[in-house]
């Protein structure tokens, strides 16, 4: 099965990102089944690694002003978390 791709914005020093630890974060789906949903954001629990091959899916990293980092990381999305109350 093809890898899924996500991206995330890291607002701290990249060196401070915890690897191999279940972490809550916001990711954007870059490869949804229905293309209209590309860039949909979600709060997820996931584990990340700076090693591109460690987890099943690819994670691109951007900094606070959108700067794309050259090398992707990898991610395992454990579950989506609903943090927003119904309108």
């Amino acid at each position: 099965m093809a890898k899924k791709e996500y991206d995330t914005f890291v607002l701290t020093d990249l060196a401070l990102v915890a690897e191999d630890k279940e972490t809550e974060m916001i990711v954007r789906d870059l490869m949804p089944a229905d293309r209209r949903y590309k860039y949909r954001s979600a709060y997820v629990f996931g584990m990340v690694s700076k090693d591109e091959s460690k987890y099943p899916d690819r994670l691109w990293v951007r900094l606070g002003r959108g700067q794309l980092q050259e090398k992707p990381w990898s991610i395992k999305v454990i579950k989506e978390v609903n943090k927003i109350p119904e309108g």
């Binding site: 914005f9 954007r28 209209r36 949903y37 590309k38 860039y39 949909r40 954001s41 951007r62 002003r65 959108g66 700067q67 794309l68």
Partner: peptide
């Protein structure tokens, strides 16, 4: 909202 054609305006934007 994804049923509307919100553009990705600039590369690097935080969303559509």
């Amino acid at each position: 909202l994804f049923k509307l054609p919100g553009p990705m305006v600039h590369d690097g934007d935080g969303g559509r």
